[in-house]
């Protein structure tokens, strides 16, 4: 944790990065590219939300797809059955997710390490299976389709490029939230718990309410990503918004980019997305399964080369080479 940022890494570099992300889809306006960037950004936003609890507080969750899915379903069901705008529905979804997270956290946050991970895994599975079986509400395995009625109020746009910027706004807001928490007493207390919980307790740091709070915030924010996901695809089904691989991806992007850093999930999401798109383009029509295999191999290689995540490893490398040069 480096709270005292230089102006370059603190403000200019992220700002330049966000401007680049905003301009790129305008230059390369190819539909495939725009779709890839949109999904990468949505993934980055979700991973940023995951990282608040999974990275800063060190509470590795493999159940966050449940909150993502709840966001997707709540806004969609309210829109289809009650005509409530997803702009309102996404907040209601976030509240439902956050409330569930408080409930889950109050029960499971006393568990440590792998026991906590297992409990989140079980929670994700329970919610996933519930979505499949509550047919009247969720449409069961075949899911729910949202009619294409473009209007900002419906959060439905004919031009897919608009979603790119919706996702980018989420990324910027979540990044800012992360940075604000990181330099606050709450952020410090979470890091203290992550680094050494016994030492944290001996210093009078009361972490349980904070950990539950940040878990709820994380769940609420990722739930909003789920609502946007539903409006982008105009379709939700249990596997695509609640599947285990989604939870794994949220964690993976943050871990690849740099766990417990504000920029890590963004770097990770972009990298993972680029790799997966390139693999699909070049290997997609070859032997089936080759895409996933190559993707997995690349992720393993990245983690072997940069065990603390790409961002921190590059940072450490630059620092070393600067010392070496001087």
């Amino acid at each position: 944790m480096k709270p005292a940022h230089s102006p370059l890494t603190g403000l200019l570099l992220p700002a330049a990065g966000f401007v680049a992300l905003a301009v790129l889809p305008l230059i390369f306006s190819d539909a495939f590219f725009v779709a890839a960037v949109t999904l990468a950004l949505l993934g980055a936003a979700a991973s940023l939300a995951w990282n608040l609890s999974g990275g800063y507080a060190g509470q590795l969750s493999l159940g966050h797809a449940a909150f993502y899915g709840i966001g997707a379903y709540v806004s969609t069901i309210l829109f289809l059955k009650a005509g409530i705008s997803p702009l309102i529905g996404m907040w209601l979804g976030a509240i439902v997710s956050a409330a569930l997270a408080v409930f889950l956290g109050a029960i499971t946050m006393r568990l440590k390490g792998s026991f906590f991970v297992m409990s989140t895994l079980a929670f994700g599975a329970v919610v996933h299976i519930s979505a499949i079986n509550l047919r009247d509400l969720t449409g069961g395995p075949s899911g729910l389709a949202i009619p294409l009625r473009p209007s900002p109020e419906n959060l439905i746009f004919a031009k897919k490029l608009v979603y790119t910027y919706v996702a980018l706004v989420l990324v910027i807001v979540f990044y800012a939230v992360t940075r604000m928490i990181a330099v606050s007493k709450v952020g410090y207390a979470l890091v203290a718990f992550r680094e050494n919980h016994q030492a944290a307790r001996a210093l009078g740091i009361r972490t349980l309410p904070l950990r539950i709070g940040v878990f709820a915030l994380s769940a609420g924010l990722i739930s909003i990503c789920g609502s946007v996901h539903a409006q982008y695809y105009l379709y939700v089904d249990p596997d695509s918004v609640m599947g285990l691989n989604l939870s794994l991806n949220f964690a993976l992007m943050a871990i690849v980019g740099g766990l417990g850093t504000a920029y890590g999930p963004i770097v990770g999401a972009l990298l993972v997305s680029v790799v997966s798109v390139v693999m699909q383009v070049y290997l997609g029509d070859q032997i089936s399964g080759l895409t996933q295999l190559a993707y997995a191999a690349i992720v393993i290689l990245v983690l072997l080369a940069a065990p603390t995540g790409l961002g921190p490893s590059v940072h450490a490398f630059l620092k070393r080479s600067a010392i070496w040069r001087s």
């Binding site: 709270p3 330099v183 606050s184 007493k185 410090y188 944290a200 210093l203 740091i205």
Partner: peptide, 12 residues
């Protein structure tokens, strides 16, 4: 040391 000092401090 900041981790300890937080207890009696209002801000970081």
């Amino acid at each position: 040391v900041v981790m300890g000092a937080m207890l009696r401090a209002r801000s970081i």
